[in-house]
């Protein structure tokens, strides 16, 4: 085992509400290792039967976009309406069939 430290690493917790549903971010917690992170996640985020599956990921392994990325990452989509399906009108014949 590693040297004792006062600060356990942070783990991000993702829970799946039912089979087939996506794992959604539930929150985070401290734990010394993966197994304990899973146990803690079970106790902290699923003690009232909220989940059927849990993922825990060391927070340091999550790569996140930064606030500065906001412009270049997300703005270009806004003025390109043709990227959205609503931009295209559907012919009446097609609508009838569906």
């Amino acid at each position: 085992m590693s040297e004792i430290t006062n600060d356990w690493p942070v783990w991000e917790v993702f829970t799946q509400k039912k089979s087939g549903a996506p794992h959604e971010h539930a929150g985070n917690l401290h734990a010394p290792d993966a197994e304990m992170a899973l146990q803690n996640a079970r106790d902290v985020y699923s003690r009232r039967n909220e989940a059927v599956s849990i993922w825990v990921v060391p927070a340091e392994h999550i790569v996140s976009s930064t606030p500065e990325d906001m412009g270049p990452f997300f703005d270009p989509a806004n003025d390109k309406i043709y990227r959205h399906p609503q931009f295209y009108s559907v012919p009446k014949v097609v609508k009838k069939r569906s």
């Binding site: 356990w8 917690l29 401290h30 734990a31 803690n40 106790d43 902290v44």
Partner: peptide, 11 residues
């Protein structure tokens, strides 16, 4: 000893 264990033991 830590919040997570506090909750686990209470559970």
């Amino acid at each position: 000893p830590v919040l997570e264990e506090d909750i686990a033991l209470a559970n």
